[in-house]
């Protein structure tokens, strides 16, 4: 469990990135921080591995205030995946995945063997093991990034817009992979994105942030859709534009689903047995 206790962060240039933020992120769940730029979502994420230290307030992991832990040791125990993968360009794919275990003193042979297995886990061909990151596609690099994040089998996985820079098709693929992985691995995932669709797909708990890290609403995707706290949330999840408000229209023998703009959203599958056919 990760706990933010009235955390604020003012950067040296005077920007108040986060103001009096309190939240509990339950273990073994995916919490998604959603907001536009300037909402402080990345700052919040970076507080969890002490890349950013709060100006006031504290962050606790399983009840322990992390300000008391040495940052380097803390970071080696937390998986971190960032946009543009952040891989080391001068290390092969395999060595990139093995980075953190090697830093923690795992013998090289062992670390590399484990890294090969992780390539399988994230759906990468082992033939890529000896390539350099610059020789991979954006999607492949992100997979390597995820594998690296998982390498020490951390309880907590921090993901900072990890799929933000890949094209929509690859992104959808990676999102599905993550859903599958999370089902098996059961990590405490903290995911930052500005894409509400991504948040709905991945999040158990979604936190919608206003500017300055103020919470607009916390809840499950269903909560946010069905009962948006205010116009800001409604607009963020798209409920105000009628894209989320659907009704059924009869077209000949079929029922089709239409949103309030009249845009076709899909076909109603009233009979599950028929759908399985």
């Amino acid at each position: 469990m990760i706990e933010f206790r009235s955390v604020s962060k003012r950067f040296p240039d005077g920007t108040l990135a986060v103001q009096d933020f309190s939240l509990v992120l339950p273990s073994h769940k995916t919490t998604v921080l959603v907001g536009s730029s300037g909402s402080g979502k990345t700052t919040l994420l970076r507080m969890i591995n002490r890349m950013v230290d709060p100006t006031s307030g504290s962050v606790a992991i399983d009840g322990e205030d992390i300000a008391t832990l040495p940052p380097v040791k803390l970071r080696r125990g937390i998986g971190y995946v960032m946009q543009n993968s952040g891989l080391l360009p001068h290390r092969t794919v395999l060595d990139n995945v093995a980075t953190v275990p090697l830093l923690r003193g795992t013998p090289k042979r062992q670390a590399r063997a484990d890294a090969l297995v992780l390539l399988d886990t994230v759906g990468l061909d082992r033939a890529l093991a000896d390539r350099y990151p610059g020789q991979l596609s954006g999607g492949q690099q992100q997979r390597v990034g995820v594998a690296r994040g998982l390498a020490v089998d951390p309880n907590i996985l921090l993901m900072d817009e990890p799929f933000g820079a890949v094209d929509p098709i690859v992104r959808a693929e990676l999102q599905q992979e993550l859903v599958r992985l999370q089902k098996d691995l059961d990590k405490t995932v903290v995911f930052v994105t500005h894409d509400i669709e991504e948040a709905f797909l991945l999040g158990d708990q979604i936190v919608i942030l206003r500017e300055g890290g103020r919470i607009a609403q916390v809840g499950s995707p269903a909560d946010l859709l069905a009962r948006p706290a205010d116009d800001f949330v409604a607009s963020f999840v798209g409920a105000d534009r009628g894209r989320r408000v659907l009704h059924v229209e009869r077209h000949g023998a079929e029922d089709v689903v239409v949103d309030s703009d009249g845009r076709l959203a899909g076909v109603l599958n009233g009979n599950p047995a028929e759908g399985d056919r």
Partner: peptide
């Protein structure tokens, strides 16, 4: 050296010393 790479090296747990020599 790419600022992203430097930051991600710190984020995964390189100390300042090891980051200098290894990254």
């Amino acid at each position: 050296v790419d600022a992203d790479v430097r930051q991600s090296a710190s984020a995964v747990g390189y100390s300042a010393w090891s980051r200098f020599w290894q990254v």
